[in-house]
Design a protein around this nucleic acid. Sequence first.
DNA 1: GCCCAGGAGCATA
DNA 2: TATGCTCATGGG
Length: 220
Amino acid sequence: MAFRADFPSVYSLYKKLLRSYGPQGWWPIIKRGRIFYHPKNYECPRNEKERFQIIIGALLAQNTSWKNAEKALLSLHCAGLLSFSKLRNASEKEIARLIRSSGYYNQKARRIKNFLEFYPALRRIASPEKMRESLLSLNGIGPETADSILLYAFKQPFFVVDAYTRRFCAAHGICHCDDYEQCRSFFERNLPRDFRIYNEYHALIVQWGKEQNGIRSKRK
DNA sequence: GCCCAGGAGCATA
DNA sequence: TATGCTCATGGG
């Protein structure tokens, strides 16, 4: 284990972030038409409906701010389409119209429809690794989206690497993460194998990244 | 008006 | 293997 010696530093960075930002309550869930965060509660999703929301949210959040993705998710919810059966019966055109605020709406609507076609078969896969392979084989699902789904919707310990994670690594000099899998494996080898920690750590890195954005825009 | 935001797929070299 | 282009809205 080449990086074993770094265990305290990666984990202590996590604890430091947690102390300064507090639990993030990620991934948020829609209830009664409102978005709810649930700090310190890692039980979500509690049911298939909440799980489904998280998956669609992960697809909508691709290359856009969470705020825009959230608007799109709420608009699907308000149209009564935020469930597998309702969305399965909706047309691609209708979905595209509703998710407009998340950007790339035609592409995302196509990807959602494609995903829904394979979802029942995907649910039958017992092994998390096999499920990851299947997710990655679907059009429009790359490593970050696959790991977000596995971690936040299925509570499986897969560390999510995104643009903020890469910046976080560079800023703290903790690893060279040009390659997605290398970076993921670095975090996974240097943290206790607990989906709650992966969940919170990623959310905290995002919070850190947003704060950095604020600092950068103030400098301009 | 410009730039960037929590990606992914495809073509091309 | 890696680099560039495309998809597109919304907010600062």
